[in-house]
Design a binder for these strands. Structure first.
Length: 714
DNA sequence: TGGCGGATCGCCCTCTGCTGGAGACCC
DNA sequence: AGGGTCTCCAGCAGAGGGCGATCCGCCA
């Protein structure tokens, strides 16, 4: 054997390929597959004369074509490398026309393959196949008159290829004339495929080398096949792909072992009779046809010889590869006539049409009306009847009826929250929860749910259901009114009824027509009939029926610091001791209003101020709850002082009093603080107050354990 | 042997509903 | 002030829809 032509620099990375037939993708993949499906054949022929072993991988017609080709070229083409196989007979030479090509995939990091600097040649398509992350796909050029190609399958890491090259070259160096360092790879490849006869000892070395490599990789050997090319040409297609002969014999993989086991026993398990069946020992599969059985057995191996050059994914069959490539190319040949959907397979289209258009549901549940398009859905549905939960959580007692629920459940253990609100960046365990959050928190026109039995409007349907359950559900036990003997079976009806008692003057005097809402008022009234005066002034022993009367008496006659309040009419300036008198007077006086009142010059007591502020807070609270706080108020509130005009007119007297207090130097914040402390303002009020003060709302949210807490923290 | 059509597996999605913590509100 | 109740809210699970990918029986 000799290598002719292309004498390059030291093995400089020309991947030696035979020229030059360009095939369509599927054909190429098919070619490789076919080759790889023949390991036994290759192994068998390896025992024969190594110099002519390559012919055993050719069909009889190819061999005939080769014989008749006659001319054994030894010419060296400018950009071709001719692999001249030297048979034992000097007269027979087979010239394999090789071409050098560039690797066009720059994305592939060559590293250890850096020695391979391939010169691209137009019109050559070379695939260096590696079922791992090492595939180099050389783009297809114009087909022109190319007739042969070589697919070099590198089944492992590139360094393995290099190592193999070195090892095998040493084994070959005495027998193989290597014209150049460039040829080493091709020699290695060819030799590894059994194309090159080795001396006995060298063959052992070769096998040792191969086994060493096989220990590091499952598929290391290369299968080189020559086939006759075009009739017009004497060139021979040299196809190099992986050959796993030793591997399969010596160290079968688990799957392969199973497959082999099945194969070895299948004959024994053939059932005699008119119709034979083939049983898979790996699984429960049976087939009536050998072809089906064989195809099935491939599912138990890792053999996936058909590789997508776009994503390096491998497939068992050409059909699967073609479908996969269609995904890359966007080619979806099965188009739905009723919509714009298109699919890669016909089955997908049929199923789609059932789901979307025909609504045909062949799989019907025997226990309910459920029907499904797919059997798997019915199977899943039936579990809801049987209670079967085959998918057990490994960390708790939970078990689910399908895999997805278990996977989703596992997030509760891992803490994973893969869904994030794009607005506030809150994270959620489920997408639906996040969507609900966005809808309720960040959307306008949030849908509300009106209770059909009352005026309640609730944000969530589920909460409306809770509302219905709590308030409108029928209660078997009688619900009695706390004020009368009425009985109800619905909580809402009871509550509505009890409200009717709220404003009625249920306390009626036995001695007169007086009636009141509160018992304590009636107690005080009864004293007007009995003459009882239980409150005595400690300074003058004067007695009073009510405590308030005693307090007023004490302040007026025994407190030296007390300065009585004087309310002045804004029209005429006349003073009054009570605001109600001012109001009554102002109507007669013609002013029509009493928008301002003055007080005495005396210092207010703390309690007095508290009372005023409490009243202000009430008015403010009402205003806030009526949403009467306006933009003008906000701007006004920016000032440090708290102007009385801020308060709604409805606050009346309180407004004036607050203004008076503010004039004395009470700041907004102080006032609000006092409002909160003394009047127990609602959260809504404080929020409005915060808004008026121009303070960030968050200030008022601190201190709460959850978002939305309205606890004031200043 | 490849292609086709149906079956199957597996994944991800949505919709739905329940639950319990928390603050607001009322009494 | 404190208890009871209600609504808001997020967490979580049940059920089912839809489709990609693959397998298998059958046929040309």
């Amino acid at each position: 054997m000799e290598w002719a032509g292309h004498s390059g620099h030291a093995f400089h990375g020309q991947v030696i390929v035979a020229a030059t037939e360009i095939s369509v993708l599927s054909e190429q993949f098919t070619k490789i597959k076919e080759l790889e499906l023949m390991p036994e054949k290759g192994l068998k022929e390896e025992e024969k004369d190594g110099a002519r072993r390559e012919k055993d991988h050719r069909s009889p017609s190819e061999l005939e074509a080769e014989r008749t080709s006659g001319a054994f070229q030894d010419s060296v083409l400018e950009e071709e490398v001719e692999l001249v196989l030297a048979p034992s007979e000097e007269s027979e030479k087979h010239i394999l026309t090789l071409q050098t090509v560039h690797f066009t995939s720059e994305a592939v990091e060559l590293q250890d393959m850096s020695l391979l600097s391939i010169q691209q040649q137009e019109g050559v398509q070379v695939m260096v196949q590696q079922p791992g992350p090492g595939l180099l796909w050389l783009e297809e050029g114009p087909r022109q008159s190319l007739q042969q190609y070589v697919a070099i399958s590198i089944q492992q890491e590139l360094y393995s290829l290099q190592e193999m090259e070195v090892l095998q070259f040493h084994a070959l160096e005495e027998n193989v004339m290597v014209a150049s360092e460039d040829s080493k790879l091709a020699v290695s490849l060819a030799e590894s495929a059994g194309l090159i006869k080795l001396q006995e000892g060298q063959e052992k070395n070769q096998l040792l080398a191969e086994r060493r490599l096989a220990e590091r990789t499952k598929e290391q050997l290369f299968f080189v096949e020559t086939m006759s090319g075009d009739e017009r040409s004497d060139e021979i297609v040299l196809t190099i792909s992986n050959l796993n002969v030793e591997e399969q014999e010596d160290q079968p993989t688990a799957g392969q072992a199973d497959a082999e086991k099945a194969k070895s026993t299948k004959n024994q398990r053939k059932t005699k009779g008119a119709k034979r069946t083939f049983h898979c020992d790996v699984c429960m599969f049976t087939a009536s046809r050998m072809s089906s059985f064989n195809r099935h057995m491939k599912t138990h191996t890792n053999e996936k010889p058909h590789l997508c050059h776009l994503c390096l994914k491998t497939f068992r069959t050409v059909t699967l590869l073609r479908n996969h490539v269609n995904i890359h190319t966007g080619n979806r040949p099965y188009k739905c006539n009723d919509c714009n959907m298109a699919f890669v397979t016909s089955g997908e289209l049929v199923r789609h049409r059932r789901y979307k258009h025909t609504h045909e549901k062949p799989f019907k549940c025997s226990m309910c009306k459920y029907a499904s398009v797919e059997a798997s859905k019915l199977k899943r549905h039936v579990r809801s009847h049987t209670g079967e939960r085959p998918f057990q959580c490994c960390q708790c007692s939970y078990a689910s009826r399908d895999t997805y629920k278990l996977k989703r459940h596992m997030r509760t253990h891992s803490g994973e929250k893969p869904y994030e609100c794009h607005i506030c960046h809150a994270r959620f365990t489920q997408n639906g929860t996040m969507k609900t959050h966005i809808l309720q928190k960040h959307s306008e026109n949030v849908p509300k749910y009106q209770c059909p039995h009352c005026a309640a409007i609730i944000a969530r349907k589920s909460d409306l259901r809770v509302h219905m359950r709590n308030l409108h559900a029928y209660s078997a036990t009688e619900l009695k009114c706390r004020y009368c003997s009425a009985v109800f079976h619905e909580r809402y009806a009871l509550m509505q009824h009890q409200k009717t008692h709220k404003n009625e003057k249920r306390f009626k005097c036995e001695h007169c027509s007086y009636a009141c809402k509160q018992e304590r008022h009636m107690t005080a009234h009864i004293r007007t009939h009995t003459g009882e005066k239980p409150f005595t002034c400690l300074s003058c022993n004067k007695c009073f029926r009510q405590k308030q009367l005693l307090n007023a008496h004490f302040r007026k006659y025994h407190d030296a610091n007390f300065i009585p309040t004087v309310y002045k009419c804004s029209k005429c300036g006349k003073g009054f001791s009570r605001w109600s008198n001012v109001h009554r007077h102002s109507e007669k006086c013609g002013s029509g209003e009493a928008k301002s009142a003055t007080s005495g010059k005396g210092r207010r007591t703390g309690k007095r101020k508290q009372t005023i502020l409490k009243e202000a807070a009430k008015g403010w609270k009402e205003a806030a709850n009526r949403d009467e706080a306006t933009a003008e108020e906000v701007s006004t509130m920016k000032g440090e002082q708290f102007p009385g005009e801020m308060f709604p007119v409805a606050c009346g007297e309180t407004t004036a009093r607050v203004k008076e207090e503010v004039d004395e130097g009470v700041t907004c914040e102080m006032l609000l603080n006092m409002m909160y402390n003394s009047a127990g303002c609602t959260g809504r009020m404080m929020l409005v107050s915060a808004r008026l003060l121009g303070r960030p709302q968050e200030t008022y949210h601190q201190g709460g354990r959850r978002r939305g807490s309205r606890r004031v923290t200043w």
